Computed example of a mutant assay.
Amino acid sequence: MAVTKLENGRWEASYRDPSGRERVKRHRTRAEADRWLTTVKGQIHRGDYVDPRLGRTLFSRWAQEWLDGSAHLKPKTRADYEGLLRVHVMPTFADRAVAAITPGDVRRFISDKVGSGSAPGTVRGARKVLRLVLAVAQAEGAIRSNPCDGVRVPPSPKAEMVFLDAEQVEALAQTIDPRYSTMIRVAAYTGMRAGEIEALRVGRTDLEVGRLTIAESVTEVQGHGLVFGQPKTYERRSVTLPPFLTEELRSHFGGRDLDPQAFVFTSPEGGVIHHKNFYNRSFKPAVRAAGLPERTRFHDLRHSCAALCIALGAHPKAIQERLGHSSITVTLDRYGHLFPKLDEALTGRLDELHREAVSSFRPGPISDGASQDLRRGPSASRGLSADLGV
């Protein structure tokens, strides 16, 4: 670092940034130059130095760099992000120097979007994309902190789940176009997502053991058509079939020797099901004809599977594996309100445990080895262990 007096009486301060590039700035006085260098030296020492040249780079350039590095995203996710960036974020920030964007700018952006009537989910998505782009600039040293951090957005209302019982599932299956009846039952009794069912191939059905392997999903992406990829959690999984579904799939195949790559369920033309067409032309009319709640979605069959399993006393871990959740926490967060009041049941059993211990107690000297057997009934500990799933 150095300070040099110029012929015109001004002072030039220079330093080398962490990359070794020389930086120079002119000041009116020596004191200004010294203060500036002291500030820069402190930033470099603390590790929060920002490159002023990069900070002057327009947001649009960082947006393009972020897009170039997002090849890992699923096609639909990438398309959704691109749409949010193009329609909502770029009109406001494209021509702004990235270092000039402040938390106040982000708050005004969110407020304007809410005020213009944008849905909460859209506002939340736009803020997420803005934050992701600015995170690239932050990682490259163009900004010290992300101005989106700490800026709150309106919560997105959660879609109300519809839980169908077995009779309602059957009503829907028998009302819809017969080619989709088995598909409805598979959704309700396996918990598979729509894209997983529509991408299910014959070679991934093992009717001898009653098992389906879920290794692929299909989704419709605007501008790209139907796109096949891995399931939502990026992991293969398998689900077992109730015997009635195994027999129904055998009937669905009709005893034919099918190509393992053929799809189990197809459109009327024999191709891959376009979910939007199926939903509007077949599913929703069948929902109305079966007398089900108008808001019932195909995804509610997945929720219904969880509810049916819980009603049968299934362990949350088993439900997690069947539905393909990334963790048991997701399962409990989503469906925890459907589980029995386990704490109440535990409290009752603790009371029973105490009463059995009192009734089985025998006064007199007790050896260390026999103390537990004499002081509490043998059935109590076994019963409690069973209740806790041990």
Rank of each mutant, 00 (worst) to 15 (best):
M1D: 00
R10V: 00
W11M: 10
E12G: 03
A13K: 09
R16H: 07
D17A: 12
K25L: 03
R26T: 14
R26Q: 07
A31S: 12
T38W: 05
T38Y: 03
H45E: 09
V50W: 01
L54F: 11
G55C: 03
R56I: 06
E65V: 11
D68C: 01
Y81W: 09
F93E: 04
A97N: 06
V98K: 11
P103S: 14
V106N: 11
I110M: 12
S111L: 07
S111W: 01
G117I: 01
S118I: 03
G125V: 13
G125K: 11
G125T: 08
A126E: 08
R127D: 11
A135E: 07
A135Q: 08
Q138W: 07
N146Q: 04
N146Y: 09
C148A: 10
C148W: 05
A166I: 06
V169A: 12
P178Y: 09
R179M: 10
Y180A: 01
V186G: 07
A187F: 12
I197M: 08
R204V: 03
G210E: 00
R211Y: 05
I214D: 04
E216M: 13
T219A: 15
E220Y: 15
Q222C: 05
L226E: 04
S238M: 03
T240I: 01
L241Q: 01
P242R: 14
F253S: 05
R256V: 01
F265W: 02
P268R: 01
G270I: 00
G271C: 02
F278G: 08
V287A: 08
A289I: 09
L292N: 09
E294V: 09
R297C: 11
F298W: 09
F298H: 03
D300G: 02
C309R: 10
A311V: 00
G313M: 04
Q320E: 06
G324H: 07
S327K: 06
S327N: 08
I328K: 06
I328G: 12
P340M: 14
D343H: 12
E344L: 13
A345F: 15
R349T: 05
R349L: 14
L350S: 08
H354A: 15
A357K: 06
A357L: 01
S367N: 14
S371D: 10
A386Y: 11
V390T: 13
